[in-house]
Design a protein around this nucleic acid. Structure first.
Lengths: 108, 108
DNA sequence: GCGTACCGTCAGGCGTAACTTACCGTAAGT
DNA sequence: ACTTACGGTAAGTTACGCCTGACGGTACGC
């Protein structure tokens, strides 16, 4: 289905979020990423798989290497989800503000 | 610090996300939420605590009840984070599109 | 063909998140 | 004051996520 927002779980882990940020800054291979991180290469590979399933990154085979880059797809879904509740949250906040206004009209 | 984005972990759990959506739709008490969910009341209370720590919900004591409502604060931080990488992701995608364009200029 | 480099995957250990039951505190009703 | 309703907290169990080490598979070099 279209509303598969596993991206939240993907970005929940600090290590995985760090990997995503580095990939978003510059397309990199698995080895390059693992070299600059305190975890092993298989761990990075598994994290990249989760990010790929969430459509947050995309991979491309370059010889024996495999270059990962940021994918706008997953990020767009997350943005849409947050924007949906952003309006509701503002409405709820506006209601509270209105009630506060009724209690303390024009405090200046 | 200001960039405490524990909101991703808060929205990662399906049950907790369901609770957040219901609270965002209409401010509710703990008992009301637990009545419509397949988990116990303490579980809902614990989930609400996580959401509250992430500034995604806010609570207010009403007699012996405790009404939770959506809080724009945590949502704003998540939106800012995603927007930051949204631009980078688009830039990366634009680069790929440009390379593709070089390979297949004006495919019409 | 052979060796090397790079990467995905599997099996297992380990920490922690999620849930339940039981308990305690607080506020309102009679 | 007693009872009832509501909700947070503690202790314990179970399930799941993260990590490592070992293995297999594919592409490029000699």
């Amino acid at each position: 289905m279209a509303t598969d927002i596993s991206g939240f779980a993907a970005l929940a882990d600090p290590t995985r979020r760090e990997i995503y940020e580095r990939v978003a800054a510059r397309p990199s291979s698995v080895g390059e990423l693992a070299a600059g991180l305190p975890v092993s290469r298989p761990a990075v590979s598994q994290h990249l798989r989760v990010l790929k399933d969430a459509r947050l990154v995309a991979d491309e085979a370059v010889g024996t290497r495999r270059v990962y880059r940021a994918d706008p797809e997953g990020l767009a879904m997350l943005r849409e989800y947050l924007d949906l509740f952003w309006r509701r949250s503002l409405d709820s906040f506006a209601s509270v503000a209105e009630e506060t206004f009724h209690d303390h009209p024009d405090p200046t």
